[in-house]
Design a protein around this nucleic acid. Structure first.
Length: 731
RNA sequence: CCGGAUGUGGCGUAAUUGGUAGCCGCGCCAGACUUAGGAUCUGGUGCCGUGAGGCGUGGGGGUUCGAGUCCCUCCAUCCGGACCA
């Protein structure tokens, strides 16, 4: 093998490789985008149109890791929905490839199918309009129709294709293939319901067994082959795998897995197919036509990419006169005339955002290390990221790429673990509550929300600062924007202008942004912080509602009053705390610690509230108790905790204080108040020694005066005693 | 259409292993102190009922001595993916 051949062979296997491929080109951004950077056919950033274009680009072979990325999901503690999004994105499907020889031409069409068992039902083949064989097999008579269709399809982006999905459009190519098992002619169509990027870009159409094929066949009047028992295909396709096959030669009477295997075996025997697992996951385009990005340590020699040696790293970005593409559409770095050793052209593309985000967390372990990402010692000490808090919007981008890179680095022996993030929590979003006014069509008159049904109206945003309790300050509204200066209002019978509302993401364009500044001004940052924790579970999204913030503020004030009066008189003493206060303390320590460990931050605040209420009632001012309270409080109200901590005489910050430990002796009461239920209905409580065994408890209950009353003279059939929980009498 | 999550008082929520449903807070009601209160304190507050009592965790069914929690089924809401062959 010569150098040239070796180079191209390696490119077909390298993890990062140069290839001519169809990429998502965004003209407005002047760069290519990865699949996950496109939402609904437009760029995620800016919402610009994206077109398909063939370009020579660097890609990373993430598809080679499909199976491992899929299996790894079972090893990590992530929210189920994110795992599911990744599973869908990887899109594993088990099926078979089958080869159909072309009639009259050299060559074959390869199709991927998950239902090889339905192969005797094939009535035609459909190619994606972009399929490479289309132009060479189309007959003279069909040429103009096919070309026209291909051109139309190219103009449509993916979104348009989906919108018109009801119409199963397509064109006959005039060519035929040979069915590998029957030897019969099968017409070849093109249709844009077949995607070039999935499978082989070609399908074997079985109208009796696939709804899309059925729709297409109906639309084009193609004869169907009936292959399912008691199914005439007059209404729809039969998609169940458990219906026995007919008209299928050696598969007759079989179904499911058995039929699947028999069909694949037959194809294998004549070398026209085999079992295959297909993944939806595509390789990720790794170059961007931007200035700001990591440069590639790559130069070109005789048109072949070469790596710059380790000793010459890092490569730094060259200076350019403008951070824009060149006139002939080259990336910004081309402006620099950048050369390696003054001789070889450097790679002008830069890496995408997901390059850095795939490994930055590793660097945190050892940020100054000049030899490696991080030292072995640091990696072994810190290990995986224990808890990753982030949003679900990165599920198919960053979160998948980080896993991919970590696997590579693990394979190469650079990191000692194969998954980057052991546990993940998706924090919910705090949403805004937008307010709306209703303008009567073609006027400048606004109607109150409760009367809007009587008019044809247009819904417009009103800034929430002008709205109080859904009532609009009409004077402020008129002054808000020039076009509203002479606005008129139709008020309801109470003389109010009511606004409509909707809960949605906070955004300037929706005029529903509430900054915490005012609340911090009024209540302080500690109150705001506690309140945010108190609102509910972290994972939950909810509208920002400040109604309850007073309650949290009162809690902190009550807490402060355990230490000093509102007038500033210091109350803390060195006396020994009584048992009750200590019980409150140690139960609180236990619950707060447990709740912290399960990330239940809202219940931590609630637990601290309960404790403060109890100590207030107990008139507890002992340093012994209150000191520990401050440590528990410090993550939630750091300023207050720190101030009181120093007033207790500490010289060092509370943030480094030892976390208190719950003493078991204080956690349990001597007496347990058993709920006594009859047939599952709780009737009364009975106080008994907490350590009493089940038998003694039963005796105590049966001897209780109220028991006889609720038995109503009947004999108990069964008495269930669960120590320190419940007593249930069945009668 | 497919997948995931969620459904508990007037509201935000709690109930960690199947064991007293509604903790904590908001709101509301009553009272105290006040010239005054968007301050503070006390008591009450799931629903129906004067009461005894009954009902109650989206609906229906099941398992169990016992179900908010487990199983089946239906409904609703939110999120995500969607011509994936």
């Amino acid at each position: 093998m010569n150098e040239d051949q070796r180079y191209h062979l390696l490119m077909a296997f390298r993890l990062t490789y140069l290839a001519d491929s169809m990429v998502n080109w965004c003209p407005a951004l002047g760069t290519v985008l990865a699949n996950d950077e496109i939402k609904d056919g437009v760029s995620e950033r800016g919402g610009h149109p994206v077109v398909q274009k063939k370009m020579r680009q660097w890609s990373m072979r993430i598809s080679a890791f499909s199976e491992r990325l899929l299996l790894g999901l079972d090893q990590i503690d992530w929210p189920e929905n994110i795992k599911e999004i990744q599973r869908n994105w990887i899109g594993k499907s088990e099926g078979a490839t089958a080869f159909f020889d072309l009639d009259q031409y050299e060559g074959q069409i390869e199709v991927f199918t998950t239902r090889p068992d339905t192969i005797f039902g094939v009535s035609y083949l459909t190619l994606a309009p972009e399929h490479p064989l289309v132009s060479s097999i189309t007959t003279a008579e069909q040429k103009s129709a096919v070309e026209q269709y291909v051109q139309q399809a190219a103009l449509k982006n993916e979104r348009d294709r989906q919108v018109q999905s009801k119409e199963m459009t397509g064109v006959f190519t005039g060519a035929y293939a040979i069915h590998p098992l029957t030897g019969k002619q099968v017409p070849i169509y093109i249709g844009d319901y077949v995607l070039a990027g999935y499978g082989t870009g070609a399908v074997m159409a079985v109208p009796a067994g696939d709804q899309r094929d059925w729709d297409f066949a109906k639309h084009h009047n193609i004869a169907m082959v009936l292959i399912f028992e008691n199914h005439d295909a007059s209404e729809s396709a039969c998609t169940s795998k458990e219906v026995p096959l007919v008209n299928s030669d050696f598969l007759d009477g079989l179904c499911g897995k058995t039929a699947f295997n028999a069909a694949v075996e037959a194809l294998e025997k004549i070398e026209h197919g085999n079992k295959k697992v297909n993944y939806r996951l595509r390789d990720a385009v790794f170059s961007r036509q931007r200035y700001w990005g990591e440069p590639f340590p790559v130069y070109f020699k005789d048109g072949k990419a070469q790596m710059i040696g380790d000793q010459e790293l890092p490569v730094t970005l060259p200076d350019v006169d403008k951070y824009l593409p060149t006139e002939d559409g080259e990336p910004p770095l081309a402006r620099s005339q950048w050369k390696y050793q003054n001789e070889f052209v450097m790679e002008y593309n830069t890496m995408p955002g997901w390059a850095g985000s795939s490994w930055y967390f590793l660097r945190y372990m050892d940020p100054k290390n000049a030899q490696a990402i991080a030292s072995k010692e640091a990696m072994n000490y810190w290990g995986q990221v224990d808890l990753y808090m982030g949003g679900a919007e990165h599920a198919t981008g960053h979160l998948l790429y980080s896993r991919f890179w970590t696997m590579i680095l693990n394979d190469l022996g650079h990191v000692p673990f194969g998954e980057p993030f052991q546990k993940m929590i998706n924090q919910g979003m705090i949403l805004g509550r937008s307010s709306f006014v209703y303008r009567i069509k073609d006027t400048n008159t606004f109607v109150s929300a409760d009367l809007r049904k009587e008019y044809q109206t247009q819904r417009l945003y009103a800034d929430i600062s002008m709205v109080d309790n859904d009532q609009l300050d009409t004077a402020a509204f008129k002054n808000w924007l020039p076009e509203y200066n002479n606005a008129e209002f139709i008020l309801n019978e109470k003389g109010q202008y009511l606004c409509g509302f909707e809960v949605e993401k906070m955004s300037k364009s929706k005029f529903n942004v509430q900054t915490p500044d005012e609340l911090i001004e009024k209540f302080g940052a500690d109150t705001l912080r506690c309140y945010e924790m108190f609102l509910g579970p972290v994972e939950q999204s909810k509208p920002w509602d400040t109604k309850g913030i007073n309650g949290v503020h009162n809690f902190l004030r009550r807490l402060n009053r355990l230490f000093q009066t509102d007038e500033g008189q210091w109350l803390v003493n060195q006396d020994a705390a009584d048992k009750k206060s200590l019980q409150t303390l140690h139960r609180t320590i236990k619950k707060v610690t447990d709740d912290l460990n399960r990330h239940s931050w809202n219940t931590v605040v609630s637990t601290l509230m309960i404790a403060v209420n109890e100590w207030t009632e107990q008139k507890c001012h002992q340093q012994e108790v209150l000191e520990s309270l401050l440590v528990l409080l410090s993550p939630y109200a750091p300023h207050l905790a720190e101030e009181l901590w120093s007033k207790l005489g500490h010289k060092e910050t509370v943030t480094i204080a030892q976390w208190p430990e719950a003493i078991a002796a204080f956690l349990e009461d001597d007496v347990f108040s058993y709920p006594v239920s009859f047939n599952g209905k709780t009737r009364f409580n009975i106080d008994l020694d907490a350590n009493m065994d089940a038998k003694t408890v039963e005796e105590a209950v049966m001897g209780h005066e109220k028991t006889a009353h609720y038995l109503e003279g009947k004999a108990p059939k069964k008495v269930i005693v669960v120590p320190k929980r419940i007593i249930n009498i069945v009668c």
